[in-house]
Design a binder for these strands. Structure first.
Lengths: 354, 354
DNA sequence: CTGTTAGCGCCTTCAA
DNA sequence: TTGAAGGCGCTAACAG
């Protein structure tokens, strides 16, 4: 962006208003903020000039003078393999968090500074985070891929709250989801309610903490049910394609599972599609479950049984914590874990609720 | 948010670095921005101090000094009736636009300032827009509900581009979608390919410009096909519930239509669900079509035939226009219309592509 | 009730 | 190659 060849667009300043109204800048400021008593007549005159000139106080100058930006930053760290289906999935995920953040910010009326994807040529991820931090009063960072040490360093300069799937960083506030309880419920539902006994697991990317947590919880839960066992497993990347690949493996396997537990919804969607294409009925012949509860799951056919990630509440809590810390940097650090919960729909074999 | 009872969190300033490194602030500034020649030894020393102190230039101060914020604002004007299904629909809509904006911003690396929902007690919508405008170099406003006059006034102070469904505001840049071509294709597809002849239209909210445009285009297109006619119509609000209500009317109507054209996807989803619940097969007994191509449409069963709104490109183009105007405020104003296009899937009666 | 006066932290000529 | 100094626009004491 160049220096502006066209005509200069000059906004009136506080001084312009003051001069025009024949008062001091302090008075104008008082009028603008409706504080400190000003004579009604003066107020009216100033207001008229403001209206006439179309004066709006400059945000940067205000931030500077009151040493507060009144903006909080939201940074999605995109570190999953680029071929992941983020193009579709990542959206919903962040979007829900965003809504939560917005709702926590509503009473204050602060806007959100959203970091775009990190530009190519301009320094590393940490510098990028730093630049963001210089424009806000606090930072909300989603996903847990930036090394803990750096985050802690960042947190020393500006209030930071991490919104994570499963990570737990010492010395900084974290709001995370607890996948274990949800996964336990899911496995037990499949086994006890539907009598499934040969479960197949489709994993997420190995470098994703929550994928690890989900797999761990799955195996753990499965271990608690003597009547059931692991029929097999596939690697995956949280993408619809992963589900399709997995199904091919499943169909070629010596032993056919009676339930496919997927590490996320996208994977489950791919699996269901492929299963049907192969003539296998879902859920009659095979249960399929997802994880995340991306909102389209309810609209699928069959509606997807899954585990709900409280993304919205995650965003909301994280933002509240952040605001608390901005108000009082001395607060002790906390880690909150919101638990994911089973959402029973039809892909597990349960009857339609309609 | 209170003044901070805890220990003050003081960030080092340019002065701290300068003093510590034994140079002037000008030199530090030069080093930070890698411009203006500085002796290598000096550079190294300054860099060390910066690293040691963890110095990061303050965003507000920079904005102020260089008279540029390097941030663009995105404002979703939420004016549709609150009972509309925005909770679910609005999301996807804005989200796609957001991606487009992000991609246009990627080369610059500028973040996006996202206006939250307008807080209750703090002035009217216009004042809220003004406050946003004071924090950015340019404003992208989605939806076309704010009166044109005010927008023009705002545009006089700060570069503004309107992202609209159908509105056309003189004196300011607009990027809009042209729904007509898509609707024409859709109607003609239904009639010519599937031999439908009794179409039922489910409308959107009367105060939405794009709802009006869609209905107009629909009636217009229908008029061009002598063999087909309007079997009836229902009011609606762009919500799934609207589709369900419409279907009840349809089932009670004296004459049964053979196709239901909905003003948006949500409505179509509701219609399909209700139709099925009543035992009517879609698309065998009745074609149902949507409008928008919210991305979940492809995953429904049957996959939804609809008209694609180029939301992402809308965001991208709008942002590009905005950046152009920021670079050169003297540019003539333009209105770009990107046309919506038919997306044939299965709910119209076409065979599965799989 | 109102005006004066320092900054806030950084950038940027202009000199040296 | 470096330093000095004046703003950028607003706020917030502190005096009147």
């Amino acid at each position: 962006v160049e220096p502006s060849p066209g005509q200069a667009r000059v906004s009136p300043t506080l001084y312009d208003v003051a001069r025009e109204a024949g008062v001091s800048t302090a008075t104008v400021s008082r009028v603008v903020h409706g504080q400190g008593s000003v004579r009604p007549a003066t107020t009216r005159r100033v207001l008229e000039v403001i209206e006439a000139l179309g004066y709006v106080p400059d945000g940067a100058a205000q931030s500077m003078a009151r040493r507060r930006k009144e903006v909080i930053g939201l940074v999605p760290i995109q570190a999953r393999s680029p071929d992941t289906d983020v193009e579709r999935m990542g959206l919903v995920f962040t979007e829900e968090v965003l809504r939560g953040v917005e709702s926590a910010l509503l009473p204050l009326g602060w806007p959100i500074l959203l970091a775009g994807p990190r530009p190519a040529g301009q320094g590393d991820a940490y510098q990028w985070l730093q630049r963001m931090s210089a424009k806000v009063d606090g930072l909300l960072i989603t996903e847990g891929f930036e090394p803990a040490g750096r985050l802690a360093r960042l947190a020393a300069r500006v209030p930071v709250v991490l919104i994570a799937g499963a990570t737990d960083v010492p010395g900084i506030d974290v709001v995370a989801t607890d996948n274990r309880a949800g996964m336990r419920e899911l496995v037990s539902h499949l086994i006890k309610v539907h009598g499934r006994s040969r479960l197949w697991y489709v994993d997420g990317p190995p470098d994703a903490p929550d994928a690890r947590e989900r797999r761990g919880a799955f195996l753990d839960a499965l271990g608690r049910h003597p009547g059931a066992r692991l029929a097999g497993g596939s690697a995956g990347r949280f993408a619809a394609l992963s589900g399709q690949h997995a199904v091919r493996e499943i169909l070629a396997a010596p032993e056919r599972p009676d339930a496919v537990v997927c590490a996320n919804d996208q994977t489950a969607i791919g699996a269901i599609r492929e299963l049907r294409a192969a003539g296998t009925r879902v859920p009659e012949d095979m249960s399929v479950t997802g994880f995340d509860d991306a909102y389209l799951g309810a609209l699928l056919s069959p509606p997807l049984t899954t585990v709900h990630q409280p993304m919205r509440r995650l965003g909301e809590r994280a933002c509240s914590l952040l605001l608390d810390r901005i108000a009082d940097p001395g607060l002790p650090h906390v880690t909150e874990r919101l638990s994911a919960t089973l959402v029973v729909r039809e892909s597990c074999g349960c009857p339609s609720v309609v």
